[in-house]
Design a protein around this nucleic acid. Structure first.
Lengths: 208, 208
DNA sequence: GCGGTAACCTACTCAGAGCAACATCTCGGG
DNA sequence: CCCGAGATGTTGCTCTGAGTAGGTTACCGC
């Protein structure tokens, strides 16, 4: 007889661990329940469905990432350094939670409506933070703030680039360090962004 | 009594259509079989498993993408224009195959070993092509070709950025056109890459 | 002690992947 | 013409695992 909150904690702990080890389809609800020392209906009473339990695991795993983002918003440092710190923290996080990252973020879209929605919300929050950061930089550079959509797209591109490099790093753990990857991303994104703000654009051949 | 090749075509056709409409878990093997006018064991005889059938669908859907990549390698045009054409073709493709794209590429990793491997191979091929393209540009700019890993990482970042922007576009179809997104990517990636090649690097505050 | 509620379990249903064993068509060689 | 081998196809089953109905036990305020 254990109070609900505590049981929920135990269940999430066990589920997160098992999902991380063997993937969504590799784990049955019965197994998770047994690990907790409880039976299946309890899982359903508390989380509704297997996907519900999985989404709760996603949320649990997402918290540190959101912490990183929220810290990176701190406006007391220069925008480029903010981005730098955020990227560094991100790659550190991925490095230290490799299996969790690939289980609950990379492979989680396409695991059902709810999971996809939760990942979408997470990405949304990150994109908003990045857009704010880039937008402030643009404003400082005297660029009209009308180009919100433009900046949002740049934020999305940056986020995708970071995710993609992280995923690649997961499969080639021997290549480089978190610092190196963060630095690569900075140079990939920040320098080009500077060019864009200075109006140095690439144009298709037809318009040159 | 229909010859094997023809049946396989029919099965792939039906499976691709149903998976696209309702997702992997939303379709049963029985339903696919019924659509073809055949029974389940035939599907297993020809594709081994549900995942095998799904992987075959991925391959089918990937062919046009690989065609785009292979065309973009054509060395008779300038590297930047090659990249431009490739990006344009990519966004056009995603635009015209929205459901297929999200079913067989976005949500396909994390759907089992084999599917993940197939997507990995696809990404690998694209990365190689991009690395070649970027590498040639670097060589033209007189940069030592030792930095293959560096360039490979840039290629990965570019690919991830493109995928991510495409995915975002899927959820905001009203925002922009294929041309606009390709242009955004060009400016995001190509301009920054130029800076890198010119040695104009961003450095962390500690080293300035 | 005594309701009442929260925690918990037994014992099922049901869908769907996968397979064994059997049936039928077709076509080339005698 | 026909007959046998391989390809095509089916019936009917097993088994795993998600999800649930209905009942039981422990705890807590009064």
């Amino acid at each position: 007889m254990v109070p609900r909150r505590e049981r929920e904690r135990q269940m999430l702990e066990a589920a997160a661990q098992l999902f991380t080890q063997r993937g969504y389809d590799g784990v049955s609800m019965d197994e998770i329940a047994m690990r907790v020392g409880v039976t299946k209906p309890m899982l359903y009473a508390y989380f509704g469905s297997k996907e519900g339990l999985f989404v709760a695991c996603i949320e649990r795993a997402a918290e540190p990432v959101l912490d990183i983002v929220r810290e990176a918003i701190d406006p007391s440092v220069a925008p480029d350094e903010r981005l730098w710190r955020g990227l560094l923290a991100f790659f550190d996080f991925v490095d230290q939670h490799r299996d969790e990252w690939s289980t609950f973020f990379v492979g989680a879209s396409g695991r059902g409506e709810a999971a996809a929605a939760r990942i979408g919300a997470l990405r949304h929050e990150i994109r908003v933070a990045l857009t704010t950061l880039l937008g402030r930089t643009a404003a400082d550079a005297g660029v009209s703030p009308e180009l919100v959509t433009e900046i949002e797209a740049q934020a999305q591109a940056l986020m995708g680039a970071a995710e993609s490099v992280a995923e690649w790093w997961l499969r080639h753990p021997e290549e480089g360090t978190a610092q190196l990857h963060a630095l690569r991303l900075m140079n990939f994104a920040w320098m080009g962004y500077g060019d864009i703000l200075r109006g140095q654009l690439w144009l298709p051949p037809a318009q040159r």
